[in-house]
Simulated assay, not measured.
Amino acid sequence: MATIRSREDRDGITIGWQAQIKRKGFPLQVKTFRTKAEAKEWATVTESEMMRGVFVQRTESEQTTVHDLLSRYADEVLQNLKGGHKELSRIKVLQAGLGKYSLAAINSSIIAKYRDKRLSTISEKTGRLIGTQSIKHELGLLQRALKMAAMEWGIALPGGIPTALVKKPALPAARDRRLVDDEEKRLLDACTNAQNAWLQPVVIFAIETAMRAGEILESWKYIKDTDGHKVKVRVSDGLQWSDVDLNKRTAHLPKTKNGEARTVPLSSRAIQVLQGLPRSMDGRVFGTTYEGIHQAFARACKRAEIDDLRFHDLRHEATSRFFEKGLREMQVAAITGHKTLQMLKRYTHLKAEDLAKLLG
């Protein structure tokens, strides 16, 4: 049976009502309300849940805000993921929009309103509406943090994972840019004349392996520290000679974007690229950075008169070529590191003329 008692200040004036429930097999439940009616209602509901075996301890979820949860997720999870730094800006956006809510109070309606507000927000950086892909990433990040809270950190969420009930924004059509006609030859010719001598071997290696830029190249980024000062931090180490086995024709990636290591098989062309490279003292396979290659690649495309081609499109190109060579979905996923076939599909754009050849 619940005990309801008043709470008085120093002058004996009632300032609230405290409900206390002691029941065998359950932790002591204590909560204070502004009115006696609210205290009685809470006690009645809580005791009913205990009797029906559906009681959930809400104390920690009531005391933990979304802001607190995301901060902990950033500290304990994101810092251990390759590319986790890219999520920090999304953390701040989510904290600004939803941070004040407790985990016990956050629900699908609140998250849906956040989604709709973001869909109508103009980006200060681009001057255009924020893309649906960005908002989908934000909701996905929030969902992963809530799952971590419930499954690993023991924070009970009374209403379950609310993001699971929220409709995600429809994504734009997947980018399907591939090298066409003689674009590969023109691109590689332009790379040969680049000031950055690493550009051509990097481009060929990317086409042959479908590896991400951060898996191939060292990368740096400027971020602000707690005092607001810009500091340069390494965000990826790039491929190391210690992880390359020329005899087995493999390149091991101990840390990838999705947090799982994988070993990439190397084609004969990729091996030729590696065998022609000088060995650097610092152990890196490619003695340049992503930032340097990014600029050199853009200039090479301009010289080759190739429009709308990004370095990341080479990953699309390589993935599609794997399928055109006859590899199956799980084989390609093992090479590229895609966790789901849906994501793999977005990176795969097969040429109709090549499919026609397979039909005979």
Results as ranks from 00 to 15, higher is better:
220 W>T: 06
340 T>N: 06
16 G>D: 07
185 K>A: 09
127 G>K: 06
257 K>S: 02
203 V>S: 05
333 A>Q: 12
35 T>H: 07
339 K>Q: 10
242 S>Y: 03
49 E>H: 10
87 E>N: 09
220 W>C: 14
198 W>I: 06
248 K>H: 15
259 G>D: 03
83 G>E: 02
72 R>N: 05
24 K>A: 15
280 S>I: 12
178 R>P: 06
273 V>R: 06
162 P>M: 13
344 L>Y: 04
324 E>R: 05
186 R>C: 01
85 H>I: 15
95 Q>N: 12
202 V>H: 06
101 Y>C: 04
10 R>Q: 15
160 G>P: 13
11 D>G: 10
70 L>C: 10
83 G>P: 03
250 T>N: 12
83 G>I: 01
77 V>N: 04
123 S>R: 05
295 Q>S: 09
325 K>S: 14
8 E>L: 12
69 L>P: 04
209 T>H: 05
319 T>P: 10
349 H>S: 09
66 V>Y: 14
85 H>G: 10
261 A>M: 01
51 M>L: 07
58 R>L: 11
29 Q>G: 01
306 I>Y: 08
120 S>G: 03
15 I>V: 15
279 R>W: 08
358 L>G: 12
289 T>D: 01
227 D>F: 13
246 L>V: 14
101 Y>S: 01
302 K>L: 11
185 K>G: 10
60 E>M: 08
33 F>D: 01
181 D>F: 09
15 I>D: 04
87 E>I: 00
123 S>E: 15
259 G>R: 01
120 S>F: 00
352 A>L: 14
41 E>L: 06
258 N>P: 00
33 F>L: 07
353 E>P: 11
114 Y>D: 03
93 V>D: 14
163 T>W: 04
167 K>V: 11
218 E>I: 00
95 Q>D: 03
205 F>K: 06
258 N>M: 01
348 T>E: 03
110 I>A: 10
128 R>F: 14
180 V>Y: 10
172 P>R: 10
196 N>Y: 04
215 E>I: 00
316 H>N: 13
214 G>I: 10
232 K>V: 14
262 R>I: 00
268 S>Y: 13
257 K>N: 03
86 K>M: 02
239 L>K: 00
316 H>W: 08
182 D>K: 03
256 T>M: 00
318 A>V: 05
306 I>L: 04
194 A>D: 15
208 E>C: 12
226 T>E: 13
109 S>I: 15
251 A>F: 13
273 V>G: 06
276 G>K: 09
2 A>S: 11
305 E>P: 02
207 I>A: 09
275 Q>T: 13
275 Q>E: 15
277 L>Y: 09
128 R>Y: 13
113 K>V: 08
326 G>T: 05
100 K>L: 03
